[in-house]
Simulated assay, not measured.
Amino acid sequence: MPRIAPLPAPYPAEVQAHFDQVMPPGAPPLVLFTTLASSDRAWRKFRAGSLLDGRLISLREREIVINRTCARAGCEYEWGVHITAFAKGAKLAAAEIAATLDYPLDPSRWTPGEGALLATIDALHDRATLSDDEFAQLRAHFDDDQILEVLLLAGFYRTVAYLANGLNLPLESTAARFADFASA
Rank of each mutant, 00 (worst) to 15 (best):
L7S: 03
N165S: 04
K91H: 14
L59W: 02
I4Q: 13
I121V: 15
H82L: 01
N165K: 11
E114W: 06
A95R: 13
L105V: 14
G54L: 10
P25H: 05
D143T: 01
D102L: 09
I97C: 07
T120F: 00
A140W: 04
A42E: 09
A119H: 12
D20W: 01
L138T: 11
N165E: 11
A136T: 14
A119R: 15
E76L: 02
W79V: 10
S183A: 15
F86E: 13
A182Y: 02
D122C: 04
R177K: 15
A93D: 08
A27M: 14
G74M: 04
P2W: 05
A184S: 15
H18I: 10
P12F: 00
A42R: 05
L52A: 12
R68I: 07
E78M: 13
I97Y: 05
H18S: 15
T69L: 03
E96K: 14
V81N: 11
T111K: 08
S50M: 13
K88P: 00
G26W: 08
D180R: 09
A37F: 07
W79G: 07
V65F: 05
A13F: 01
R127V: 10
D145V: 10
D102W: 07
L52H: 14
A154G: 14
A85M: 14
A94Q: 12
Y77E: 09
L130P: 02
P8V: 04
V15D: 09
A17N: 05
F19K: 06
L7Q: 14
A119N: 12
E149I: 07
L169V: 06
L7V: 01
A42I: 11
Y77D: 11
A87P: 00
F86W: 04
A87M: 04
P10H: 02
F86I: 04
F46V: 04
P28F: 00
D180E: 08
S39L: 03
A116P: 12
F46H: 13
R3C: 04
I57R: 09
D143G: 13
I66R: 03
L138C: 12
L167A: 06
A123R: 00
A128V: 11
F19Y: 15
P8N: 10
A94G: 05
G89S: 12
R55L: 13
R177I: 08
F46Q: 03
F46E: 09
W110N: 00
A182M: 07
P28E: 15
S183Y: 10
A85N: 12
D144N: 13
L138D: 10
D106A: 12
D133N: 06
A73L: 12
A161L: 02
T35F: 08
I97M: 10
G74R: 08
P24M: 05
M1K: 09
I57E: 05
L59K: 14
Q21E: 15
L138P: 10
D144T: 14
D132I: 00
A5C: 01
F19D: 06
P170S: 08
A140Y: 05
R68N: 11
I64E: 05
Y162A: 14
A95C: 08
A116E: 10
